[in-house]
């Protein structure tokens, strides 16, 4: 598992899924949390200055536990929405976990 920062104009893999967060501290913490929650995958970060794509291939987990650890304070995942103008993938939201995924990706397993 590595965090890969792509050049701003780099082509994205179509199978990458995950949140798009407005640039700022929350985005940085989401990167760390996604890295912790998806140990078997590379985390691809595309920084477009105003918004940041934080994606893994085929399936991307984000847990409250990891995000709280990265932030150093309590955080309800529902509040992620405040800084999330977009996200890529199918989504499943539960109190302790957000999951973005595709059902037809070879990176889904």
């Amino acid at each position: 598992m590595t965090i890969i920062e792509l050049e701003s104009d780099a082509a994205l893999d179509v199978d990458h899924v995950g949140p798009v967060i407005r640039a700022g501290r929350l985005a940085e913490c989401v990167i760390d949390a996604v890295a912790a929650d998806n140990p078997d995958r590379d985390v691809v970060v595309v920084d477009r200055d105003d918004y940041v794509r934080i994606h893994t291939r085929g399936r991307c987990r984000l847990t409250r536990e990891s995000l709280e650890r990265a932030l150093g304070e309590a955080f309800q995942l529902e509040a992620l929405e405040i800084e999330m103008p977009s996200f890529k993938g199918r989504l499943r939201t539960r109190t302790d976990e957000f999951l973005w995924y595709l059902t037809t990706s070879d990176g889904e397993a």
Partner: peptide, 12 residues
């Protein structure tokens, strides 16, 4: 972008 945080949710 604040408006779009609503759109991203209700588009679902």
């Amino acid at each position: 972008s604040s408006i779009q945080t609503d759109e991203a949710r209700h588009a679902q």
